[in-house]
Write a protein that binds this DNA or RNA. Structure first.
Lengths: 223, 223
DNA sequence: ATGACCGACATGTGATCACAAACGAGCCGG
DNA sequence: CCGGCTCGTTTGTGATCACATGTCGGTCAT
């Protein structure tokens, strides 16, 4: 009778066939927020989110709770959901956190950085130029983060990387406002310094370059 | 007729009269985990949590999701909830994070540290001796964290403090195992160094003392 | 005695519902 | 013309339910 019950999931084991609904919603919202696709102060509704992802309120609520826990979303006293509008003090704090965490991550990645990694970084850096040409703010943020993440992945420090990503998440909506403002810009200077320091195995130089790259953009964000 | 409608909340604005159920559950579980009241690897069930707090599964699930997002709980592939058993690599990483964040927090608190703060720290430090006498592991962790939090609150850096607390949360169950092991111990030496550095306004000394205090305990945790 | 199978129970997931609170637009009095 | 009230609608919250899946026990064949 129930012989078929032994293979309840005929799909391939890799790439979970049906990711949990709340996880799909979480990931969808997360990347949007981190890439700056949502403006600060934007209001969201659970029913709206659910409708957008084709699920009911329950998974939408779970995804929102998770994002609130990570500081990516804000809850008003009445439970309304919105992307946070950051104060200057908070922006400075988050910039300091980025500096702390990412300098450490880069430093740990340095001894593990092979030529293949540097090549990939240069490729990513080149594509940053393209998105700048296209005036694609979201694409710029996404590619920039990809550059940093690619480097930090070599640090073999998942907890630290997760914390750095949490900070990125909190800065997402605000970064959109920043990069929407200053349109013209060449491919980031400090990225080249980072790559040069990696090639030279120059740890102090790498720390300084990362710190500068992180600080530079955020400094002009404080109104 | 409806003049009273302008004061929809006759209660005092502080201490929300009926905190949301999911928040009560979240806070309850959170402090338990952070204080090391739950052993690593301990399994939990949504229905069990709900029953314990007198709520249904829904708020229990939200609280759990939030704690999972903060790394305080772990989800097995099938969705089962448990406190994580940390690997040595992860413990070292979290210790490094504590060092990074807390040194920075202490450094920021230093210029704001008045005599009243130092007095409070000394009072807390004294009570640490008592809980050590009583062989109260949970009390020790709680009081120790109170010492650190009291200092870091002066840093006026809420985002950074929140990150530090997240790290504490992840280390909670594992710390229980540690402090359960080594029973006898005098009131922590490095706390006295921290207080001395605060009195002297000695920033390098403070940074070193905090780093030592954070590192010391965690070092003997790596199996 | 040992191992695989199978079935009952436990558990997480997501949808739906009832309810309370909050928001907002319209209305009324000034 | 303006300000405050009011009521309908929107929205979040929590309980409950049906269902799929996982887990653990016993059972039976070898």
């Amino acid at each position: 009778m129930s012989v078929m019950l032994l293979t309840p999931r005929p799909e391939s084991p890799r790439s979970d066939p049906t990711p949990a609904a709340h996880d799909r919603v979480y990931r969808g919202l997360r990347t949007r927020i981190m890439h700056g696709a949502i403006a600060p102060g934007q209001a969201l509704t659970l029913r709206g989110i659910g409708a957008e992802f084709g699920v009911s309120m329950t998974p939408a609520r779970e995804a929102v709770r998770r994002l609130v826990a990570e500081g990516a979303l804000q809850l008003s006293s009445s439970g309304r959901v919105s992307t946070p509008e950051l104060t200057n003090e908070r922006i400075e704090e988050l910039a300091a956190l980025r500096a702390l965490l990412e300098v450490e991550l880069a430093s740990r990645a340095l001894p593990r950085a092979h030529m293949a990694l540097i090549d990939r970084l240069q490729t990513i850096n080149a594509s940053i130029g393209e998105v700048i040409e296209a005036h694609d703010a979201v694409g710029y943020i996404r590619t920039n983060l990809e550059f940093h993440r690619t480097l930090y992945l070599r640090a073999q420090a998942p907890a630290m990387l997760a914390m750095a990503e949490t900070v990125w998440l909190q800065l997402g909506p605000t970064m959109r406002k920043l990069y929407g403002r200053l349109q013209r810009r060449e491919t980031p200077h400090f990225h080249k310094l980072i790559i040069a320091a990696l090639k030279a195995g120059d740890e102090p130089g790498l720390r300084l370059a990362v710190r500068s790259d992180v600080t530079q953009g955020l400094r002009m964000l404080t109104t």
